[in-house]
Simulated scan of single mutants.
Amino acid sequence: MALSIVSNLLQVLVVLLFAPLAKGVLNRLKERFQSRRGPPLLQPYYDLWKLFHKDTVVSEHSSWVFRITPYLAFMAPLVVTLLIPVLTAYPLFMAFMADMVGAGFILALSGFFASAAAIDTGNPYGAMGASRTRMVGILVEPIFMMIFFAVSFTADSTIPYIVQQKWMTSIAAFFAPSHLLVIIAFVMIILAETGKIPVDNPSGDFELAMIDEAKNLEYSGRGAALMHWAGSMKLLVLMCVLLNVLVTPWGLATRKDITSVLLAIPLVGLKILVLIFILALIETSLSKLRLFRIPEFLGAAFVTVFVALIVHVFSL
């Protein structure tokens, strides 16, 4: 029990401390692919340090929703970290408290509060970004459910630790068409949920074109730092779900000792680095879609996972 608690704390610390680094590596790679020098790898840490040392300005028209949202958004990825395999292939003491549907609900709840907080201040740009974010969320949630259905049909469970043990039993299972299609759909969902190109451009600063970043316009100081940190952790958590649950448990600790858990940190980091390289390549190879084209992109993700379900049913 003590080792399980320590392992869970290590998972939380890894997501908490290395999420800004993952964002910095992604931003640096995107600039390199475009033949630019790019920001330092540690730039997200500098930005967080600067924001935490700035004063917080709160609109007089805002309510308690605006004030508590940064803390809810910050805690949601950390709670999900306790439910998914980040460093260990064996279940920890909170592994069975919720499945993938519950983890998705926690992230969706923080997204709802973020949209409500953007509307709460009365800023028209915040409301515009919140409405666009909800539009994307409404289209993304059915795809999430279809992915969970596909996973449950294959692994007879939606508990992440059970999925990685039952689904990834052989090379043939990994290269099954239904499995590969689910992975493609989940990558498309990561791009949409984290505000990446082609759905959104996180580096853009034009208010009328913002989607995900428009929700954070009214935050300053500690609130802005928590919102940006939460976005980085959400990206890292989704990458861990994709890599450790849907792709391969390689690199995760299989022995119940602290040395194996610590050794899993650089191995899992190597997998994440490969995925970051792929995401950076996708973002630099595509252009941002117009707003009315985003449903087409998410519709393609829905069709992909639907075909995965059909292929799996016929393969039985």
Rank of each mutant, 00 (worst) to 15 (best):
V245C: 02
K196A: 08
F112Y: 14
H228S: 15
L208Y: 06
S170Y: 02
L235P: 05
K234W: 01
V79Y: 05
V140M: 04
A155F: 03
A98Y: 12
L263G: 04
I162Y: 01
T88V: 11
G137R: 08
G122V: 10
S260T: 13
T69V: 09
D200E: 04
A2D: 10
S115F: 06
A230S: 13
G204W: 00
R255P: 00
T248I: 13
G231D: 14
A114K: 14
S220Y: 09
M168K: 04
L226K: 07
A253T: 15
M233A: 14
V268R: 11
M227H: 03
G251M: 12
M188W: 03
L191K: 01
H228I: 15
I183H: 03
L16R: 00
I211L: 09
A76C: 07
A89G: 13
A176Y: 11
T284V: 10
I190N: 02
F144L: 14
G269S: 11
R36M: 11
D156F: 07
P124T: 05
A280H: 02
F153G: 07
L72D: 03
H61M: 11
T88H: 02
H179P: 08
V136A: 08
N8W: 01
L275D: 04
L72H: 03
D212V: 01
F66Q: 05
Q165H: 11
L107M: 14
L16H: 01
P77N: 10
Q43T: 11
A76I: 08
A192F: 08
E283S: 02
M146Y: 06
L298K: 03
L139W: 05
H312Q: 15
K215A: 00
A214G: 04
L42N: 15
L191D: 01
A155D: 06
S152E: 05
H179C: 09
D257F: 01
S178Q: 08
Q34S: 14
A118R: 12
Y125T: 11
S157V: 07
L107V: 03
L41W: 09
M97Q: 15
A185V: 14
S178L: 04
S170T: 14
K50T: 14
V25M: 10
A173H: 08
F174Q: 02
S115E: 11
I197H: 03
P177M: 11
L10I: 15
L51A: 06
L87Q: 07
P77W: 06
P39F: 13
V247S: 06
I211S: 02
R255F: 08
E193Y: 03
I189H: 00
V245A: 01
P39T: 10
V151G: 00
L191A: 01
W229N: 03
